[in-house]
């Protein structure tokens, strides 16, 4: 087997292993319940043994633990996430389907906005190192990185939706039944909030790696060869500087998937984040498990993709494996 393929398969294996362990944690968490899920759901009513036993059976809590886990995991793999414990007990997959789409659009838009801006800001700060521009970007990044996303969101609402200007809606109750095009305005504030939360991390990372590369001996060599400054930057420096940034970008997109919790809640945006808050508040375990597993899986997959992408675009890693 070629070594490159071997390493890719190894990474893939590690990703699958991590996912399995994640699912184990998600499953095991329910075992931390005092009593069991049925008791928790029924609360005071659990004194009613008949109802309690029936619910236990419905939740398959009477089976051995290993079987419960494999059953649940098998269901997850087939796309059967169980039934909600709240209300009519709807199918979890149906419940969260629309939310997943909404959140995916939100995250994608935020990524599309933030990544190019981050790369531009990072590269420019590195080139104009210690300039006024660099210092301003640095202070802005520092402040944005320290603020919780919901604080950024509230400040944006205060400025753009209420007190100062009344341009944008403060609540993003996207209706998945209506065409998205007409509802674009609802996405503006959540997308800006998320983008402002991501830009500091990615641009700082890119600045740091660009600065390091610009100090490298091969960049000095390029300059001493008489290579023009733009070419030094675009041809010699950035291709090397971007490599360590890929992982950071991936982690941040994955983190967006988690960061949407507070932002969606703030804007009452009908996505997985707000859904998770509701489910946790209602102690709707199957939904919580499904959403948490989904978020963790996105993290693992994005990381894996970044890993493989890094190997593929960096010659030393790609060809050094022989």
């Amino acid at each position: 087997m070629p070594p490159l393929l071997k390493i890719l398969i190894m990474r893939l294996g590690l990703g699958v292993l991590t996912l399995l362990l994640v699912s184990l944690v998600v499953f095991a968490a329910t075992q931390a319940l005092p009593g069991d899920a049925a008791k928790a759901i029924l609360g005071k009513d659990s004194a009613d043994t008949e109802r309690y036993e029936a619910l236990r059976k419905q939740l398959r809590l009477d089976r051995p633990l290993v079987e419960q886990y494999t059953n649940w995991l098998g269901g997850v793999v087939r796309g059967d996430l169980g039934r909600s414990l709240v209300g009519a007990g709807a199918n979890v997959t149906d419940l969260i389907g629309a939310r997943v789409v909404n959140s995916a659009i939100l995250v994608l838009l935020a990524a599309l906005v933030s990544i190019p801006i981050s790369i531009l800001l990072g590269a420019l700060s590195a080139i104009w190192r210690d300039s006024k521009f660099d210092n301003a970007v640095n202070m802005t990044n520092l402040s944005l990185a320290s603020l919780p996303e919901f604080v950024i969101g509230i400040l944006l609402v205060l400025v753009f939706a209420t007190a100062v200007f009344k341009w944008l809606p403060s609540v993003s109750n996207v209706n998945s039944l209506l065409p998205l095009a007409g509802q674009m305005k609802l996405f503006v504030l959540p997308v800006i909030t998320l983008a402002l939360a991501v830009i500091p991390y990615v641009s700082r990372m890119l600045r740091a790696s660009t600065v390091e590369v610009l100090e490298s001996e091969y960049v000095m060599m390029a300059r001493l060869k008489g290579v023009s400054e733009p070419r030094v930057l675009w041809h010699h420096a950035l291709p090397n500087a971007i490599v360590p940034t890929i992982q950071v970008i991936a982690i941040n997109i994955a983190w967006l998937a988690g960061g949407i919790v507070t932002v969606e809640y703030l804007f009452t945006f009908p996505g997985v984040g707000a859904g998770l808050v509701d489910a946790v508040a209602n102690r709707d375990m199957p939904v919580v498990q499904a959403l948490v597993l989904l978020m963790a899986a996105i993290y693992v997959l994005l990381n894996l993709m970044a890993d493989i992408f890094t190997i593929l675009i960096s010659p030393r890693l790609r060809t050094g494996l022989r």
Binding site: A29, V261, M285, V288, A296
Partner: peptide
């Protein structure tokens, strides 16, 4: 588990 999600799982 991104940011507050792990805590939420156990809080639920």
């Amino acid at each position: 588990f991104p940011s507050v999600v792990l805590a939420m799982l156990f809080v639920s």
